[in-house]
């Protein structure tokens, strides 16, 4: 199968205006991914399934991930003049990365027996802009999995044919898989005195 850089170039060539970013995966597994933008995601997905020659006809896994707001610390070497002497010191820059929710798609090709190609879609934030385009019109296998991410993470999939809760009951109000979910009191350890 082609490398991710080649796939990225071909996507950008075929779908005008698509912005694709390669997210490298540290660690021994490899499996780097492509981050797509919302406006062109559906066209990119259709291209990957039909026009690209990769024949990615099978969406195997759709995962939701919660990335709450964190403070990222970066160490940088900076030249500073102290008492007339120029020195290089290390300073720690703190940067707040806003929170977002992420949907990761693992795609394979049943026809050509190759894969995986990993796609990512990120929401704007973890509140009112927690929405991404649904890829169910391209791969029906994503239908229930996207519903599950809506149920447990609260991500709204625009264009999904039937977006409602799937595992928890209708009327449940929380998004339990989020990192800041507080489980009900009765699920804590109870001591019967």
């Amino acid at each position: 199968m082609e490398s991710l850089e080649q796939i990225k170039h071909r996507i950008e060539g075929a779908v005008a205006g698509a912005r694709v970013e390669i997210i490298t995966n540290p660690g021994p597994a490899g499996q780097h991914s492509l981050l797509l933008d919302h406006a062109h995601a559906l066209r990119v997905a259709t291209f990957l399934r039909e026009g690209s020659g990769l024949r990615l006809d099978y969406a195997s896994n759709v995962t939701g991930v919660d990335w709450p707001e964190t403070v990222l610390k970066e160490k940088r070497k900076v030249k500073q003049t102290i008492e007339g002497v120029e020195r290089e010191i290390e300073e720690t820059i703190e940067r707040t990365r806003p929170g977002f929710l992420e949907v990761v798609y693992h795609l394979y090709s049943m026809e050509l027996k190759q894969g995986p190609v990993v796609l990512r879609l990120r929401t704007g934030d973890r509140a009112a802009s927690a929405r991404v385009p649904s890829l169910t019109p391209v791969w029906r296998g994503a239908e229930f999995q996207e519903r599950e991410i809506y149920d447990l993470y609260g991500v709204i999939f625009e264009g999904h044919p039937d977006l409602r809760r799937i595992l928890m009951w209708e009327g449940f109000e929380d998004y339990p898989m989020r990192k800041d979910y507080a489980a009900p009191v009765e699920n804590a350890a109870v001591s019967i005195a």
Partner: peptide
């Protein structure tokens, strides 16, 4: 019944805790 965050009531006080 299924409430917004869990079951309502969370247990039946007549039989639990024993």
């Amino acid at each position: 019944e299924h409430g917004a965050h869990g079951l309502v009531p969370s247990h039946n006080p007549a039989i639990w805790p024993p």
